[in-house]
Design a protein around this nucleic acid. Structure first.
Lengths: 337, 337
DNA sequence: GGACTTGTATGAAACGTTTCAACCGTCTTG
DNA sequence: CAAGACGGTTGAAACGTTTCATACAAGTCC
């Protein structure tokens, strides 16, 4: 029942184990005749190389770990696709782990990855400060931070410029003639939310005049929160009500959209809307949603390339921080009234 | 730089390597005093167990592989969550692989998993007939088929009853008084599409009388296909036009919904709609969408449990095929006109 | 024909664990 | 007090590879 080992293959092909190993790793160094003999023996026995033994002896694996906050979130799955593409191109395999925003869970996965002796780790950490991750880096495993704005000395990072994203959205709404603009999102503690708001605020401030940005704080970035934000909006005096809302997230924007239309307000005529993330359903909404798109696959690809670079260069590697620019996609929800 | 080994820990704690190993694996078998001494040595040296060596010597890993068709698809990520929950509960780690519907890619991942000597594999195969997978089973790695209706002798499988799902949707529409019902979906070659249609057809046939099911064939299950199906529907003579449409998929239903409302038809008053999959956005649509929900997490959980069972029982294991029942979620889109 | 090279193949020593028979005190029991 | 049981520890042999120094044979060159 047990899978045949290199030894049995060697015996069947009447060569030494060293030769079998050579067929596996440096086929050009063995004569065509014996090579074929060995290959035949392998397929006859159904030989499958034992990666554990290989990793143990050679001291290196062909694996990198990717730890994301939520596999259910299209943002991360797209990032994962980019990572896989880059890893694939250099013969690496990606172990995808889902921390589910849970600290202990993240820790378990990190332990596992380190025990596996992965070549490197890509991670969007649950907490920015993570002593455990620090230890892993100290022990010599390269780590690249994904979508995390804290620029540390001892690791590379890639992220998208959320401040710029906020600015783009707000500038667009201002250009459409809106003066009373709202930013919806929360909680404030999420750095993405804070940054997007900050960018929007800066744009509004620069516009000068009577332009103003109000803040509709929400408890989360969910669809339901969007509906509540809609109710809140409807309660305000129509004369002072914002004519445009920039939402920290598409889900929020979709909830808001539904609440507004259900209550008889028209989008974009009464209220213009811009979301963030450009999820698939943004274009498919009742009123197609304008949104800020992040280069998700590209983000993953570059992160993986940075990691591969570090793995290659070892000690001599100089850490880098790459910041991507988001892009505004204009659709019906923010057309000029 | 290299991570400390058990040997160095043993030296620092002045015990034998055997004792260190015992601390790791059977802590109750070593006296509290030495145990503490070893533990201290470990943390002082930053010891991290080498999983390769462990796996090599002990002959077993603590890993199972999960190969899905598309990590971007919420169906599979929910299934993955269920798998992880079950694996977690018995101390297993899941390696998540994305075949992306690509045969060669799937094969690479399977090779990798087998080389890693995973304890078992959960897979939704790209092709039903897969000789490579067959070989893996023959060599002794347990495999459980996920969401795949072909019941083979040499492996367990779990799936959801699509015929029943189709029947539930159609029976609901018939109960609302509809007689001219349409099924939208395609291509026919997808077994899920064929099964759902079959179930709906059976229900309509049983209803008898003038009840009839027409077929709106679509080239794919996308949002855009839904819009085209809407156009098609609008072109038919209003007197003979179906008053209800059951879509093979929510995305399709959402496209259809948007096209119909854009052209002035009201849902559910003029046309009732039922989708399939109950994706997050179904409830969030302009008109909340009735849909057939599959027990996705449960599917993954049971699949993993079946696999764990087989790993446990070994030769004596009897393969089983579990079929789940889907559930209809009624919302506004199919309310009685 | 001796001294190199070149191309292949070999054998044994690692890699870091787990496992297990053996050992040594100390305690219990009849 | 002898015999056995028990709790704790040890040492060495595996596990299946890779790696490397070595060996051998066949050319090549002066």
């Amino acid at each position: 029942m047990a899978i045949a080992s290199i030894k049995e293959v060697a015996q069947l092909a009447s060569v030494s184990v060293g030769t079998v190993s050579n067929v596996l790793n440096r086929p050009e160094a063995v004569s065509p005749a014996t090579r074929e003999r060995v290959l035949n023996a392998m397929s006859e026995l159904g030989f499958v190389r034992n990666e554990s033994a290989r990793a143990l002896r050679s001291g290196r694996t062909r694996t990198m770990g990717l730890v994301v906050l939520d596999v259910t979130n299209p943002f991360f799955t797209d990032v994962a696709k980019g990572v896989e593409a880059a890893a694939d191109a250099s013969g690496m395999i990606v172990t995808l782990c889902n921390s589910d925003q849970d600290g202990p869970r993240e820790r378990r996965y990190l332990d596992h990855l380190e025990e596996q002796r992965v070549q490197g780790i890509l991670i969007t950490p649950v907490e920015a400060r993570n002593p455990h991750l620090e230890q892993i880096i100290d022990r010599g495993t390269p780590v690249v931070l994904l979508d995390c704005r804290t620029r540390k000395r001892n690791r590379c990072s890639v992220a998208v410029d959320d401040v710029l994203g906020g600015r783009l959205a707000a500038e667009h709404l201002l250009a459409q003639g809106h003066r009373r603009v709202a930013f919806a999102g929360g909680p404030r503690s999420i750095s993405q939310v804070a940054d997007r708001r900050r960018g929007a605020a800066a744009a509004v401030a620069e516009a000068g005049g009577e332009a103003a940005l109000t803040f509709l704080e929400t408890p989360s970035l969910s669809f339901t929160s969007g509906r509540h934000a809609g109710e809140q909006l409807l309660e305000t005096d129509p004369a002072r009500r914002p004519t445009a809302v920039f939402c920290a997230n598409d889900l929020l924007a979709l909830g808001l959209l539904q609440e507004l239309t259900a209550r008889g307000l028209r989008v974009p005529d009464d209220v213009a809307l811009v979301g963030y993330d450009d999820i698939d359903y943004a274009a498919a909404a009742a009123v197609p949603l304008s949104s800020v798109r992040q280069p998700r696959e590209e983000l993953g690809k570059v992160a993986a390339e940075l990691l591969l670079e570090e793995i290659d260069e070892g000690e001599s590697h100089r850490h880098r921080h790459v910041l991507f620019e988001p892009e505004l996609v204009v659709r019906a929800s923010s057309a000029r009234p």
